[in-house]
Write a protein that binds this DNA or RNA. Structure first.
Ligand SMILES: NC(=O)c1ccc[n+]([C@@H]2O[C@H](COP(=O)([O-])OP(=O)(O)OC[C@H]3O[C@@H](n4cnc5c(N)ncnc54)[C@H](O)[C@@H]3O)[C@@H](O)[C@H]2O)c1
Ligand SMILES: NC(=O)c1ccc[n+]([C@@H]2O[C@H](COP(=O)([O-])OP(=O)(O)OC[C@H]3O[C@@H](n4cnc5c(N)ncnc54)[C@H](O)[C@@H]3O)[C@@H](O)[C@H]2O)c1
Lengths: 210, 210
DNA sequence: TAATTACTGTTATTACAATAACATTGTTCG
DNA sequence: CGAACAATGTTATTGTAATAACAGTAATTA
């Protein structure tokens, strides 16, 4: 399998393309031109073609890309063959919203457990997943083969919790908290910082006004 | 006021620095060295200094940056003098989590209204804010001087709702939905795409494993 | 006071991403 | 057939961000 390093931005766009392509497929569209895909995302057709070039897929000339094939090729890049299991760490307001949302979808990424400290939640089903005590995290992570954690604990527990996740063998973390985390380079950390995004909007709105 | 264009990534980091600085201030720290601020975010001291250079702030040599001053300077860049008012569009699971979270904070950005279609929510308080009917959005946006929208409606209403927001005079949108949106260039659109972020984690986890 | 230290501020270089330019290839049709 | 077309695939250029190199300066000390 071609495992050359893709540009990070290309990986992001592939994820987005795939969602659009799945919609197209659902609408019975079998082929799509680079400029169509581009228009759907307000980017240029060149960008689309370049991204697709990176993953080594080729269309039938003049017919556009085969929607089904392209979905599969992107899947081959992004998805694991083995299912990747995901855990929610801290199933409060945000954790519940995310879990509920995911339960309604089906994908290669499955939320298979939640972890919390609150005794009212532990050993119960919360938003459709079983909630476990943080104390048992190492054993459950191994048992259920969980590789990815979605971190939605309060800010002041974030650093400590992250250490436990790493020790438990978690390989990737999506960080919803607004505190910077420290992980070894073998663990992929993705920041997902709502406050920063919102303040960025505020900055650009202000700038345009001024 | 110096309104030269800052690098987008610098704007993001300024938002992050400020949060850390506020923590430092709360802990009674009055000065901070570039390398300290850097260590707290796992970046280099040079990057910190360069960012601070961009905004034209200077420290007292050898004493580090004045925490209070730096917070204010960053505020002068990011915050508006006039308060910026924010609305939640679609106050479902995610919208409620966000609103509850923000109500617990104080900042220059205030959530002053929610909008929804659901008659059970309209004209009630939801998570601490008044929920209005989407039908009245233009008038309420003007009345309450709302400039920013947080978009948390279902995917299939996203495009249509966005048009209404633009017409109502919204100037910036933080898009939580997973569909690409079309806005005029005078409106700042910030994508905040959870699925892409999560799939990115999955990709890098898989890559490291393979 | 001159050398040393411990920082900051600026410029230069390198790396990464987006855009533009161009070459290529089936398809259509005069 | 072969020019014109309509699309893709590739290389070249430009723009943006990160890193590295270095210059400057207050405090410290011999
Ligand atoms: N809600 C939002 O919109 C929002 C926005 C930005 C950032 N965040 C961040 O996301 C995180 C969660 O936000 P929320 O609104 O869901 O908070 P919340 O208080 O509703 O939920 C936190 C949950 O974590 C659990 N918890 C506490 N300590 C824990 C620990 N050490 N280990 C495991 N679980 C623990 C709590 O019992 C609770 O269920 C916070 O760090 C917050 O800063 C949330
Ligand atoms: N919940 C998550 O973690 C999550 C994750 C990724 C993306 N999203 C996206 O965020 C959006 C909201 O997710 P959710 O889980 O809160 O869904 P939800 O169904 O709980 O909430 C949607 C809300 O929007 C209201 N609504 C519907 N149509 C509307 C319209 N035209 N105008 C105004 N309000 C309208 C509904 O009445 C409801 O209150 C969706 O687009 C979803 O794809 C959510």
């Amino acid at each position: 399998m071609k495992m050359m390093k893709l540009p990070e931005k290309t990986v992001e766009r592939l994820s987005i393309y795939r969602r659009t392509l799945l919609d197209c497929l659902a609408q019975g569209k079998t082929h799509i031109f680079s400029h169509e895909l581009a228009n759907l995302h307000n980017i240029t057709a060149v960008q689309v073609r370049r991204d697709i070039m990176f993953i080594g897929y080729s269309s039938m000339q003049r017919k556009g890309y085969d929607v089904k094939e392209l979905i599969d090729v992107i899947g081959g890049i992004i998805d694991s063959e083995a299912r990747q299991n995901v855990a929610i760490i801290g199933i409060g307001n945000l954790g519940r919203a995310i879990t509920t949302y995911f339960m309604g979808k089906r994908s290669k990424l499955n939320i298979v457990a939640a972890f919390d400290l609150d005794p009212n939640k532990i050993d119960r089903m919360v938003s459709g997943v079983k909630c476990y005590s943080m104390q048992n995290i190492e054993e459950i992570v191994k048992e259920k083969d969980i590789s990815i954690a979605i971190l939605t604990v309060p800010a002041d527990s974030a650093a400590g919790t992250t250490e436990r996740l790493v020790q438990a063998g978690i390989r990737g973390i999506l960080n919803f908290t607004t505190v910077p985390l420290n992980v070894p380079s073998s663990v992929h950390l993705e920041e997902y910082d709502m406050i920063t995004s919102l303040e960025k909007v505020a900055y650009f709105v202000k700038k345009q006004a001024g």
